[in-house]
Amino acid sequence: MLTPTRRLALAALAITPSLLAALPAAAQDAQPVRLIVGYAAGGPVDQGARLFGQALSKELGMPVMVENKPGANATIAGNEVVRAKPDGLTLWFAASPTITISPNVMTKMPFDPAKDLAPVAPILSYYNVLVVNNNEPYKNVRELVAYAKANPGKLAYGSAGVGGSNHLGALLFARRSGIEMNHIPYKGNAPAMTDVIGGQLNMMLDIISTASSYIHSGKVRAIAVTSPQRNASLPDVPTFAESGIEGLKGFDVGGWYGVYGPKGMAPELVAKLNKATNAALAQPDLKKRYKDLGYDEWTGNPQKLAERAAKERAMWATVTQGITVD
């Protein structure tokens, strides 16, 4: 006999008899859903996942627990999901770099995102902002470029890891503006931001959602955003293209979040999780929170997520030539 808690979990997922066979322990015991994050706690991906997890829990009628498994360009987290049972209880809140960039740069990629994962749903799109330590002498992109040219190799920028979007975004900026900077990889954006604030690091590209609080509180100074237009949450911060530097015309570097599960999930289960995800993203509180953080809404079906991933994986293949990660 099912307890009230078990009945709630079943009702929330609208489980059919055939699907129940794939989820015996999950549905009947109302175990929590594990939402895996490939970066350190406190960073932008972690923040986005925790907000989403709360909303998804309401839709599923069961707990959603965020687990941080940082390292190796978030492939540790991805591999955790790849090896999990395809029962819907282990999901990956993935940031696009691991799906679209890592396959092009990692010499020992532990899995193939296109073959070993089941796309569930797109979540949102994002852009980065270049922030610098408050004691740096440059106030805008033109001044930064002039300083870097006068002091080749002196400036260092941080990222969440080699091959990440903020690594390659900064690399593109350096290449297109004709400057040299040293790259310092971290295990997530949060520790890199700590060093920018403390002066151990000159600058970094960080996702607008988390960087904005440091900018508004005066802990770092914003130089430019990587989007084609200014971001609503940082209206006074210009785009890279606004610098007027020839190589930065049309500069547009962003990313996205999506939910994936292990390969082999029943189509009915993927459909149920996709429906619950879109319902969670439609909750007014979550929509407002994401908008206030500078995110762009991006929702849809699993195919939409898979198609964008394939397109961007091909694009980054040309940008990352010569970059390898062991």
Rank of each mutant, 00 (worst) to 15 (best):
R289G: 13
P284C: 05
E268Q: 08
R289F: 11
D285C: 15
G294M: 01
G264H: 04
K287V: 14
D292F: 05
L286F: 03
D252P: 09
L273V: 08
D296M: 14
K249A: 15
G255R: 01
A282L: 11
A271N: 09
G264S: 05
Y260C: 06
K249M: 11
V259G: 03
R289W: 12
P262T: 15
P284M: 02
L248C: 03
A282P: 08
G294V: 01
N278K: 09
Y295L: 08
Y295T: 00
L248Y: 01
K291V: 15
A276S: 13
T277C: 11
W298K: 15
P284N: 12
Y257I: 04
A271W: 09
Q283K: 04
Y257V: 06
A276M: 10
G254E: 13
Y257G: 06
K272C: 04
P284I: 03
L293G: 00
D296C: 14
P262D: 02
K291F: 05
K287L: 02
K287E: 08
K291W: 04
K263N: 12
P267S: 05
R289Y: 13
Q283S: 07
D296A: 13
Y290N: 09
K275G: 13
P267M: 13
A280S: 14
D292K: 01
V270K: 01
Y257F: 12
A279H: 09
D252S: 06
V253S: 13
A279W: 00
E268C: 11
G264M: 15
F251W: 05
P262M: 04
V253Q: 05
G258K: 07
D292T: 00
A279E: 05
P267A: 03
G250V: 07
T277R: 07
F251I: 03
D285L: 13
P262K: 02
K288I: 14
D252V: 14
T299Q: 12
M265R: 01
G258H: 07
E297N: 09
G258Q: 07
V253C: 14
E268R: 01
V259P: 03
A282R: 03
V270H: 12
N274H: 10
N274A: 09
D292P: 02
A279D: 13
